[in-house]
Computed example of a mutant assay.
Amino acid sequence: MSEKHLVCQGAIVKCNYGATPDKLKVLTQAKRYINDKEGSKKLMATHMDIGTTFEKNTFGPCKMQPLPGGGFKPCQAVVTAWSGFYDKITLQDNNGKALLEDSKATCPSGGKDCITIINHGQTAEVSQKNVENADDEVLAELFPFVDLKEEDGSLLIIKNL
Rank of each mutant, 00 (worst) to 15 (best):
Q128E: 12
T80E: 14
D113C: 07
I117Y: 11
Q92D: 14
Q92I: 11
E125T: 03
T123R: 07
C107I: 01
A124N: 04
L91W: 08
E125L: 02
G84W: 03
G110M: 05
V79S: 10
S103L: 04
Y86V: 07
T116H: 03
Q92P: 14
E141W: 05
S103D: 09
D113F: 05
C114L: 00
T123H: 01
A98M: 13
T116L: 07
P144G: 01
T90R: 14
G111L: 05
K112E: 13
V126S: 02
G96S: 08
A77Y: 10
L142E: 05
D135G: 02
C75W: 07
P144W: 02
V79M: 15
G96I: 10
S103P: 03
G110Y: 03
E132I: 04
G84Y: 02
A140K: 15
H120D: 14
K129I: 06
E137N: 14
E101H: 13
D87W: 01
Q128M: 06
V78N: 15
L91F: 15
E137F: 02
S83H: 12
A105Y: 07
L91E: 04
V78E: 15
Q76V: 14
S103C: 08
A124M: 06
E101I: 05
E125I: 03
Q76Y: 10
P108V: 11
L100I: 09
F145C: 08
P108G: 11
N119P: 00
D113N: 15
L139I: 13
E132V: 02
T106H: 03
D93S: 14
D135Q: 05
Q122C: 13
E137D: 15
K104A: 13
K97M: 12
P144D: 10
N95M: 12
S83I: 04
K88M: 14
Q76R: 14
L100R: 10
W82E: 13
S109Q: 12
E125H: 06
T90C: 09
Q128D: 04
G111Q: 11
N133R: 07
L99V: 12
T106A: 09
L142N: 00
I89R: 10
D113T: 09
K97Y: 13
Q128R: 12
K97A: 13
T90H: 06
A81Q: 14
K129F: 04
K97L: 08
D135N: 15
T90W: 01
G110A: 02
K97T: 07
